[in-house]
């Protein structure tokens, strides 16, 4: 089953108040979900729980049948690609192409080069492929981190505030790329304040409040 299931998820950072107090929900294949809620409602923590960087204090998260408690992040990465808020935390290759190829190569994808080339094309970065990532404007570096995630070829993609710091031309590129990826029927989880931007693509929304799912819309597979 290509889904993600949350059962009675509880989570607290050591010595802090609980962030999640019983989250129950299921994410179905092909959904395009926005994760929203006020600052501090745990949206970014949610992504770290998804790929096993953090483990639940109680309850379970199952990603495609794998319990995140017992599965290493490096293995979950083959199924779910996550981007975080600071591009500078991940960029290390000396070329844009090398950066995008890093993920699929780690996962041992035999078509890493093709995946990387496709992602560069999709995000309008092909023209910069041989440049150093730090020679790109900051907003293109952010697109680069998104392209790097897409290139991993995972069925699930989770982005933390991907549209922040993107100006209109990059926003349009990003939307066009997501449109072009539609036929691949991947599942998207997007933490964002920018609901209006993603509205045309989204199939549902999960609103977090007081450590629980306050509202869950959509919930069935994406309509054709």
């Amino acid at each position: 089953m290509m889904s993600i299931v949350f059962e009675d998820l509880h989570f607290a950072y050591p010595g802090s108040d609980p962030i999640f107090r019983g989250v129950n929900c299921e994410i179905h294949p092909g959904e395009f979900l926005l994760l929203t809620g006020s600052n501090g409602s745990g949206k970014s923590t949610f992504l770290r729980l998804l790929n096993g960087l953090l483990k639940p204090s109680r309850g379970n998260i199952t990603v495609e049948g794998m319990n995140t408690r017992e599965t290493a992040t490096a293995r979950l990465a083959a199924v779910i690609a996550v981007t975080f808020q600071h591009p500078s935390d991940q960029i290390f290759a000396s070329t844009v192409r090398g950066e995008v190829r890093y993920g699929p190569k780690n996962l041992g994808r035999s078509n890493a080069d093709t995946l990387a080339a496709q992602a560069l094309d999709l995000f309008g970065l092909a023209q910069y492929a041989d440049m150093h990532p730090y020679d790109l404007p900051a907003s293109h570096r952010r697109l680069l981190t998104i392209a790097s995630a897409v290139a991993m070829g995972t069925p699930f993609l989770a982005f933390d505030e991907p549209s922040v710091h993107l100006s209109q031309p990059e926003r349009l590129l990003f939307l066009r790329a997501l449109e072009a990826l539609r036929p691949e029927k991947r599942t998207y989880l997007i933490v964002t304040h920018d609901v209006r931007f993603f509205r045309p693509l989204c199939t549902g929304e999960i609103v977090f409040q007081d450590g629980r799912v306050h509202r869950r819309s959509g919930g069935n597979a994406r309509p054709a």
Binding site: P137, A138, S139, H140, L166, S167, Q168, P169, E170
Partner: peptide, 9 residues
Amino acid sequence: CAILGPAGA
């Protein structure tokens, strides 16, 4: 005064 424009402007 607001100076607006895309990245790289």
